[in-house]
């Protein structure tokens, strides 16, 4: 097809960086799922036209600094407490879209109590839970969701259930709570999965805007630095291992 050219003009535009992302270069490592998930959040907020009425709560961990990338109002919470912060914000601002963005160390370890109780109270918020089975920011330690046998800096022989218990399936747990209306598990390791995940995220936000209780969306994610693999190998490893323990799909939708 030599000689044919695609004209660079608006009518031919298929995909561009959403304007709700700031110009800041993300601090995430190359290939990190957080970058893709941050982008999906920005795209969904922009598409819903709620950038002026959305308040995000960031955790402690790699995504603490998500506020540098998405151009909305943010609160940076103490480790694990994002759901408590969000509960108050939403009750004081019932007309706003309020969401948390938390990793597995934040939500499923130190913040289990706050997360479960926000779910149980049926707060009208969306909880975005990024599960990469490791503490990324502190350098790849074992988290509650680390897979059996998985080597981390604090489980150098591999996770052993007699020492560390079992991978924590907290999405399954919150699905049992009456205050939660939507629980879904998604991933961004392929383009198809990412497109599906974006639809699920949009649905979660729409349910929160309609005050349907908690929307809980888990992203099964990679941490190539923590896992000590290339980003591409991490995506493959996620498909072969993480998705066995944490299969994607809706866990609850009422």
């Amino acid at each position: 097809m030599a000689g044919l050219k695609v004209e660079i003009k608006k009518e031919n535009l298929v995909y561009k960086r959403t304007e709700l992302l700031t110009d800041n270069t993300m601090h995430y490592c190359p290939g990190c799922s957080h970058g893709t998930i941050n982008k999906l959040v920005a795209e969904v907020v922009a598409e819903l036209g709620i950038e002026e009425s959305t308040i995000g709560i960031t955790p402690v961990g790699c995504s603490a600094f998500a506020y540098n990338y998405i151009d909305i109002d943010w609160i940076q919470a103490a480790h694990g407490r994002a759901c408590a912060v969000a509960s108050a914000v939403k009750r004081l601002h019932p007309e706003k879209m309020v969401f948390t963005y938390q990793g597995d160390g934040d939500l499923a370890a130190i913040g289990t109590g706050e997360s479960i109780h926000a779910c149980n109270r049926g707060e009208n918020i969306t909880i975005i839970y990024v599960n990469n089975a490791t503490y990324g920011m502190t350098g790849g330690q074992m988290s509650p969701t680390t897979l059996m046998g998985m080597k981390t800096t604090t489980s150098p022989q591999g996770r052993d259930s007699s020492l560390h218990g079992y991978p924590f399936k907290i999405a399954d747990m919150v699905a049992h709570l009456d205050g939660v209306s939507y629980v879904t598990r998604q991933s961004v390791h392929t383009a198809a999965a990412t497109r599906k995940a974006k639809k699920a995220l949009k649905k979660a936000f729409e349910k929160s805007l309609a005050n349907k209780g908690v929307s809980f969306i888990e992203f099964v994610a990679t941490c190539s630095s923590g896992w000590k693999m290339s980003p591409v190998a991490s995506n493959k490893w996620l498909e072969d291992n993480m998705l066995q323990a944490y299969p994607v799909g809706d866990l609850k939708d009422i």
Binding site: E7, R17, M26, P30, G35, T36
Partner: peptide, 11 residues
């Protein structure tokens, strides 16, 4: 869609 740093524009 996959790019974590949103650095690709497509026509």
């Amino acid at each position: 869609v996959m790019c974590p740093d949103s650095c690709i524009t497509v026509y």
